[in-house]
Amino acid sequence: MSVRYFAALLLAVFGATAHAQGFAGMGTSADGYALPQPGTEFAFPADHGAHEDFRIEWWYLTANLRDQGGTDYGLQWTLFRSALSPESNEDWQSNQFWMGHAAITTPDAHFSTERFARGGIGQAGVTAEPFTAWIDDWQMTGIETGRLTTTGPNFAYDMEISAQGPFVPQGESGYSVKSEAGQASHYYSQPFYRIAGTLTLPDGPVEVEGQAWLDREWSSQPLSEDQTGWDWVSLHLDTGEKLMGYRLRSSIDPPYTVATWITPDGTPEPYPAGALTMTPTATSDVDGRAVPTTWRLQLSGKNLDISAAALNPQAWMDTAVSYWEGPVKVTGSHPGIGYLEMTGYD
């Protein structure tokens, strides 16, 4: 298939990059779409489903896995939704656009693939009850306990998940501010999944188990024009505590950082902007791109000073919208494992 064709296609839909910045980077206004409102209480299970009146939304699951021989793996399963216009329609005329990304990372390989679909015909979608998120044959069925499947040209996986803790609202009770200017999204996570299953790799199937983290986010507002990319981590610390943090890079201002500390029982402790510092300490060459693949993270309130290093620095998502996404190993004051995502380096 023509990569250029789809790159151009996605450029039109999402702007230059994926995830937070990319999704918010389209257009210049949210005219006609619903807007995130502070103080909105999540209503489950309805909010697990799609919010089609919002412009963008995703179901974003990452997992740190290990096989019986002690080899570490990373896994990604993402479903993006975007409304192409505020006006909703049936069948082929649907305004809903869906994109799936999936990947497996091993210490020395990275497999990724993608799918596209439009809403309205049943090829892709999310239903809240019973929970099913799908595009083609990729599925996530069940959100407390469930099954996660993906197939690609050179890999596949079939996993069981079960949540060991509650859903955790990010930001101010789920209202997550993305810049000084006040752009925001609704954002909650499920960082407490146990996950186990089979990865099918070119060399054959591998039985694995580990921890997974689901992010749910929806919004209609673009990021600021000057925001050039984003570095995001979700960490499972050995103590059972979790840390979500991100750094939005700007072409004119210093980076804007946000963090949420999550206790083992699922209580979020949101930190104000600037509390977290993220510093790249090593850069890898990924097909000619300079990508920071080791980070120093410091969170003053927790005496946290750790280093997160990529399991495989070459975990580049070579999809139509491309970015870096892969598992990390955490050392320092609070050792553990986690996932790193970086956009805007291509």
Partner: peptide, 27 residues
Amino acid sequence: IDPLTVPGDVAPSGANIAGDLAGFLTG
């Protein structure tokens, strides 16, 4: 055609479907 699933070389070379996806698909 369905531009979201079609192989890239099937669409006419001169058509900028990708640059105008929302216009092509909706309205």
